[in-house]
């Protein structure tokens, strides 16, 4: 059991190191800032619409719960 966890830990370290060593032959800009800017804007554009739509749906739901159900239907 202990040997297993050591192997897993080693693999994790190895994989983490791999990301650093991973060459990026097609990246047009060598700067880390550019990479981070692309990461950031990718995350922003992906998460923003989902969270906004989610927020609006949540807001609509709370509004519906506050109003008593319509009669006659």
């Amino acid at each position: 059991m202990k040997g297993n966890s050591i192997i897993v830990l080693m693999c994790c370290i190895l994989l983490a190191g791999l990301a650093q060593a991973d060459a990026c032959p097609v990246c047009f800009s060598a700067k880390d800032e550019t990479r981070l800017a692309f990461y950031f804007s990718t995350a922003l554009l992906s998460i923003l619409p989902l969270s906004m739509v989610g927020g609006v749906i949540f807001w609509i739901r709370t509004r519906f719960k506050r109003v008593p159900p319509q009669t006659g239907a």
Partner: peptide, 21 residues
């Protein structure tokens, strides 16, 4: 609908984006 917002860069695999991405 949710997933459709996180797939777009598959059009750019050889356009010079980060391979990790």
């Amino acid at each position: 609908g949710i997933l459709s917002f996180v797939v777009w860069a598959h059009h750019q695999f050889i356009a010079g984006i980060d391979p990790r991405m």
